[in-house]
Simulated scan of single mutants.
Amino acid sequence: ILEQQQQRSGWDANQLQSCRITRNYGDPETRYQVLCKADPERSAGGGTDLTPVFVHGTAATILKGRSLSGGLPFWMSAGWGYYVEHRIFRLCRVHYIDFKTYYANEKADFKRGATLEPNEPWPSPLKKMCRKEIREALDSVCNAQILSLTPNQSGYIFALTYFLVSTDENITKYQKLIERSRQGEKITKSILLEVYGYEDDAALEKDWYEFMESRDFR
C-alpha cells in the first residue's frame, strides 16, 4: 500500500520511512494525521498502542501548521515531536529507526548509560554522553535525514529543540523561526544562528552543550 502511494505521490525514501515509523500513512509531511491502528503492510493486522505516535505526530503537525509549511527541516518537526512527548510522558518512544537493531549491529562498544531507550527518559543518558564528549555537531543535527539517522542524532535533535525553547527568551526566538517559515523562508542552519544571535556553530554549541550538562536539562 505504501509503495503504491509512494509511486502516486512521488515520495522519496525518507518520506516513505517516515510513514512507516510514525504510522501517518496518508501524509509524510505530517500536515494532517491519518492513523491506522492495524498495520496495512501486514495482512494479519494487529492493534498497537498509538498514543506516543499520536502525540509526536500531532505536535509536528501543529508546528508545521503554525509555519504554514510542510517543508520544515526534519530536525525541527522530529525535535518538536520528541520535546512534546518528553513533556507529557517523560519518554521519547517514536523512533525513526530501529534503535535495538542499530545497537546490535554496531561494533562500537556502547558504554553503560550511553544508549537511548524507549522506556527511559532521554536527558540522563544524553547528559552522560555530552559530558564524555560523545556529541553531535550542530551541522550533523541540522542536516539529519531519516535514512542515515543514528540514535545519537535522534537524541541530539531532541536536546537541541529542548535548548532552543529552554527559556522565555529562547521561546520568543523559536517563534521567530516559525514566523520566518510562514514568510516562505527555508529554515537553514544559517537562519537558526542568525535568529538566535550566534556568530557561528561553535558559539551555539557551547551554550547548547552547557545546557545539556546542566540541571535544567531533565
Rank of each mutant, 00 (worst) to 15 (best):
154 S>V: 04
102 Y>K: 00
129 M>V: 02
99 F>H: 10
102 Y>Q: 06
147 L>E: 15
123 P>G: 09
127 K>P: 00
151 P>T: 02
153 Q>C: 09
96 Y>S: 06
158 F>R: 06
102 Y>A: 06
100 K>T: 08
143 N>Y: 04
99 F>K: 08
114 A>V: 02
106 E>P: 01
100 K>S: 14
154 S>P: 01
161 T>F: 10
114 A>D: 05
133 E>V: 11
115 T>S: 13
101 T>N: 05
107 K>G: 09
108 A>R: 14
111 K>Y: 01
126 L>D: 00
145 Q>N: 14
162 Y>K: 13
122 W>G: 05
155 G>P: 12
150 T>N: 09
154 S>H: 11
117 E>G: 01
124 S>H: 07
153 Q>V: 12
109 D>K: 12
108 A>T: 10
165 V>C: 04
161 T>R: 02
143 N>I: 10
150 T>G: 04
141 V>R: 06
149 L>S: 10
133 E>G: 00
128 K>F: 02
132 K>T: 13
166 S>C: 14
134 I>D: 00
116 L>F: 09
156 Y>W: 04
164 L>A: 14
107 K>D: 11
148 S>T: 14
98 D>T: 12
128 K>Y: 01
164 L>C: 08
108 A>K: 03
110 F>I: 03
155 G>C: 05
131 R>T: 13
137 A>F: 03
111 K>H: 08
140 S>P: 03
101 T>D: 10
97 I>G: 01
119 N>S: 06
157 I>Y: 05
120 E>I: 07
108 A>S: 14
105 N>T: 05
125 P>E: 12
164 L>I: 01
112 R>K: 15
152 N>E: 10
115 T>L: 06
